Simulated assay, not measured.
Amino acid sequence: MAPTESSLLLPSGSGRSNKKEASGDKWDLAYIVYFTLGLGYLLPWNAFITAVDYFAYLYPDASVDRIFAVVYMLIGLIGIFLIILFSHKSHAFVRINVGLLLFVISLLAVPLIDAFYVKGRVGLYKGFYATTAAVALSGVADALVQGSIVGSAGELPERYMQAVIAGTAGSGIASY
């Protein structure tokens, strides 16, 4: 039987079946972990962007949605670039854990800023700058976590990358 063109594109020994027994994930625990990690690394961004109406109310002279997007994406791009350059000097599990800690800090900073400084008052732009810094910190965390999770899932069978992407999609739903 002659090989088909699509089978020539696959690496040798790569089977199309992703049976649970072949991966050793009998109870789908690794799948659930990768799904949860995919859910977790985009959830902070969704939290910031979902609350953009609140921030636009507090800071009416700022284009909050545009500033948040530019800061988050630019910091994330620079961070991912640096991780690519220096990934051989660190381990993925360290980057993931540091990134998750930075996510927690950035998400806790905003309600603390509001509770102790802004207190719902409109026009306190030092609070906006601090919130933008929290968005930037979240962008750094996203670069650390997303790059490491996608990279580690890419070394495993395809179903784990699917779990990460499904978790990412689920974070958009979970934030509403």
Rank of each mutant, 00 (worst) to 15 (best):
L156C: 01
I149Y: 03
L108Q: 06
F81L: 13
I49V: 15
Y34L: 13
S171C: 03
K126Y: 06
E155F: 06
G120S: 12
G79I: 04
D142V: 15
G167C: 07
L124Y: 13
V33W: 07
Y176N: 11
G120C: 11
V71R: 06
R16M: 09
G76D: 03
A62H: 06
A92C: 03
L101S: 14
Y54C: 05
V135L: 12
G127T: 08
L156T: 02
V164D: 02
L10F: 04
G147C: 07
L37D: 06
L137E: 12
N18D: 10
F48Q: 06
R159Y: 00
V64L: 13
G24N: 11
F55N: 13
V122D: 05
G76K: 00
V164E: 03
S138D: 00
D142P: 04
V70G: 06
N18W: 03
L58Y: 11
A92H: 01
A143C: 05
S90L: 08
Y160I: 00
S23D: 09
A136F: 09
F35Q: 12
I80K: 04
N18E: 11
G127V: 09
A166V: 02
L85V: 10
V71L: 14
L29F: 05
S90K: 11
Y54Q: 10
A2C: 00
L108K: 08
S6W: 05
S23P: 03
L156A: 08
S23T: 11
K19L: 10
I78L: 15
F93M: 11
R121P: 01
L101K: 05
V52E: 11
I80M: 12
A62N: 02
K119V: 09
A51L: 14
Y117E: 10
G79P: 07
I75S: 08
V98F: 06
I105P: 02
L102Q: 00
I165L: 12
G15Y: 00
P60I: 11
R159A: 08
A30Q: 09
L74T: 15
I32Q: 01
S63L: 12
L101R: 00
G123W: 08
P111D: 14
G127P: 07
N18Q: 03
L42S: 02
H91S: 14
L10A: 09
V70S: 09
P3G: 12
V33N: 02
V104N: 05
S152P: 01
V118H: 08
T132M: 15
L100H: 05
R16G: 07
A69H: 01
G76H: 02
I80D: 09
V150T: 04
S63A: 15
S63Y: 05
K89V: 04
T132F: 13
A22N: 12
M1D: 09
A134D: 04
L58F: 15
Y129D: 12
S106H: 12
S63G: 10
K19A: 05
E158M: 10
F103V: 07
L10C: 01
A153P: 06
Y57N: 09
V70M: 14
L124S: 04
V64M: 12
N18C: 02
L107W: 04
I113G: 06
